[in-house]
């Protein structure tokens, strides 16, 4: 029995529990709410996608899992983030350092910005290993990791500088570094947005393969609903700092319930979709500090009713496992 299947036979425990998280960004005295009462759980081995557009709070929520948001200018004003039962927001500094890269690892959008341009990649991966698994900080282990992320001829690559590699390769190196410590949770913030679509396909295949082999959980942030279909077990759609819909991925894509999710899916051109004209969502995404009163999607909602302008809807379980924040979703 390989280690991968061993992971899968264990009972599903909530690896990550974000409970009523509230975060403000401070500008002088004023605090602008960026994450507004967000709750989300992630089981062991599960892949959850956080979907939304710029300013919705998805990146800040994901960074909070390892308390990576600088405070100030941010300020946590409520809630907790339980990683393996321990609240990240109250952890002492050394425990926090231990979980970063240890229990939870990150992969970001722009690999060229995350890799040190003047250090060879082999050395950077070794650094990751040295911090969390010092007994494994060897060239053999580096090559093993590069093989894991399917970099061809890894022995010849450990001496490469990042600029000698393409974007797709750099992203694989990032994933290798993130995996060095055998984390339970991988947080990937738009990991393929900066990559060409054929390379994106390679990276998604890789993540799926790693998920199966290592039993790893993945929290993946994206604005691309197509990726959600390929990789997610569950999806949380965010808008203006709140989760507006939460559901198993296939069900959400088959039948979205929140007007924003529906509008988003309708406004994206689909390959051989045949639509003569796209159904655009009028207006703009509201900026932090300028959220409308009442339902935040109300000004742009095609199904808006007068009540929506003043009454803030709760996130309600309207069907088993399907949560929607809308006064009129059925």
């Amino acid at each position: 029995m390989t280690p991968g299947t061993l992971h899968l036979t264990l009972a599903r425990v909530a690896l990550l529990e974000i409970k009523n998280l509230k975060l403000d960004f401070l500008a002088g005295e004023q605090g602008a709410r960026a994450v507004d009462d967000v709750s989300l759980t992630l089981d062991s081995g599960e892949t959850v996608c956080l979907v939304g557009e710029s300013g919705c709070g998805k990146t800040v929520t994901a960074l909070s899992v390892a308390r990576l948001v600088p405070t100030p200018p941010a300020k946590y004003v409520g809630g907790e983030i339980l990683l393996n039962g321990r609240d990240v927001l109250k952890m002492p500094a050394d425990e926090l350092r231990g979980i970063r890269g240890g229990v939870v690892s990150y992969v970001f959008q722009e690999p060229s910005a995350s890799l040190n341009p003047v250090i060879r990649i082999g050395k950077q991966i070794k650094e990751s290993l040295r911090l969390h698994r010092p007994e494994k900080a060897t060239d053999e282990q580096v090559i093993r990791l590069l093989k894991l992320v399917r970099i061809p001829a890894p022995e010849s690559r450990i001496g490469n500088y990042p600029f000698e590699m393409s974007g797709g390769m750099q992203q694989r190196v990032m994933i290798a570094m993130a995996l060095a410590s055998e984390p339970k949770l991988l947080v990937a913030d738009e990991p393929t947005t900066a990559l060409d679509v054929t390379i994106q396909a390679q990276i998604l295949e890789l993540l799926l393969d790693l998920k199966k082999r290592l039993g790893m959980s993945i929290l993946l942030i994206t604005h691309n609903l197509g990726i959600v279909g390929d990789i997610a077990d569950r999806v949380a759609v965010m808008y203006a700092g709140q989760i507006v819909e939460l559901a198993p991925a296939r069900e959400l894509l088959r039948k979205p319930l929140h007007p924003y999710t529906k509008a988003l899916m309708n406004s994206v051109p689909k390959l051989s979709g045949g639509a003569a004209r796209l159904t655009a969502i009028p207006g703009n995404v509201p900026r932090i500090g300028n959220f409308p009163a009442g339902c935040r999607f109300y000004p742009r909602c095609p199904s808006a009713k007068p009540e929506c302008a003043t009454k803030m809807p709760d996130l309600v379980e309207v069907e088993p496992k399907r949560w929607v924040r809308c006064l009129y979703a059925s």
């Binding site: 279909g229 069900e251 088959r254």
Partner: peptide, 21 residues
């Protein structure tokens, strides 16, 4: 084939190109 498709039921076979440009 590499374009992600929003259809949850699509069982298309993706052609994954090896290597880089």
């Amino acid at each position: 084939s590499a374009v992600p498709v929003v259809d949850p039921d699509s069982k298309r076979q993706r052609i994954i190109l090896p290597g880089d440009v």
